[in-house]
């Protein structure tokens, strides 16, 4: 009995010491991590906008500054409702965890609730002679989630830039949606909509429609099919808002 008590005591003591050390470290390092993660997202958004230069994204602070001065963020609902501040979004959905800012809107969380209640962020890059509108689409790749930030020109149809992200696509194959510059460059200048429908497609069998088709990445068929589904559903959420703006 005595011996057993010693073992419990030992484990409890050790656990307390380790927990204290980890908790201390977490308190110091986690804010930096969150900053990094936010900056990475902001960088991905800004990267899509063609007039943003490398130098403006050199450091975390630069990214923050560029984002702050140039981007006006709003959120929209699939029915076209516009939220100008994040407080309005939070007030409209009291049952949801409140968001700190528009760039914190988590589409993964949004997917879990009813489609008509979801909010989608729109990042507007203010510029004379036509704003850029960066929208987010999200879907399934081969292994896990994929997403893309798409910068549209002021006509809300022509793609000015695109940046993909993924959780765990195969490096060299599916992950090329993020890593291959030549793949992403194909999108620039294409149109998203044809009439009322989303026509942007990654084509397996050669490009048929010069305005809407992108050539597939060989060996990444499932990821590319997932991206096509992502475009279909993703851009449709923004359609009501787009027709309001134009």
């Amino acid at each position: 009995m005595k011996k057993e008590q010693n073992i419990y005591l030992y484990v409890v003591q050790l656990t307390i010491v380790i927990a204290a050390v980890l908790a201390g470290l977490y308190n110091v390092l986690d804010p930096i991590y969150k900053q990094n993660r936010n900056a990475a997202k902001k960088e991905a958004i800004l990267k899509c906008v063609p007039i943003v230069k490398e130098a403006q994204l050199a450091s975390v602070a630069d990214v923050d500054a560029t984002f702050k001065t140039n981007i006006e963020a709003i959120a929209i609902k699939p029915d076209g409702t516009i939220f100008k501040t994040i407080e309005e979004v939070n007030a409209a959905r009291p049952s949801m965890q409140p968001y700190e800012s528009f760039s914190n809107i988590d589409l993964g969380l949004e997917e879990k609730i009813d489609e008509k209640d979801r909010v989608y962020p729109v990042y507007i890059y203010k510029q004379e002679g036509g704003n850029y509108y960066v929208v987010t689409v999200r879907g399934n790749g081969l292994w896990d989630k994929i997403w893309a930030f798409v910068a549209l020109e002021a006509d809300l149809n022509t793609i000015a830039g695109i940046d993909f992200g993924h959780v765990g696509e195969t490096p060299g194959l599916g992950a090329e949606i993020k890593d291959s510059k030549s793949f992403k460059d194909q999108f620039i200048g294409l149109k998203v909509f044809k009439g009322d429908n989303v026509a942007l497609t990654i084509q397996k069998k050669g490009i048929k429609d010069k305005d809407h088709d992108v050539a597939v990445i060989s060996g990444a068929t499932v990821t590319c099919n997932g991206a096509n589904d992502m475009f279909r559903s993703g851009f449709n959420h923004y359609k009501a808002y787009f027709s309001k703006v134009n």
Partner: peptide
């Protein structure tokens, strides 16, 4: 073995925190 795992897990958590803060990519 439980103690060994505890120590390893704690150190891995340290690595994870440090990388998240200083080598995000």
């Amino acid at each position: 073995m439980i103690v060994q795992l505890l120590v390893i897990a704690a150190l891995v958590q340290v690595v994870s925190l440090v990388l998240g803060a200083f080598a995000y990519s």
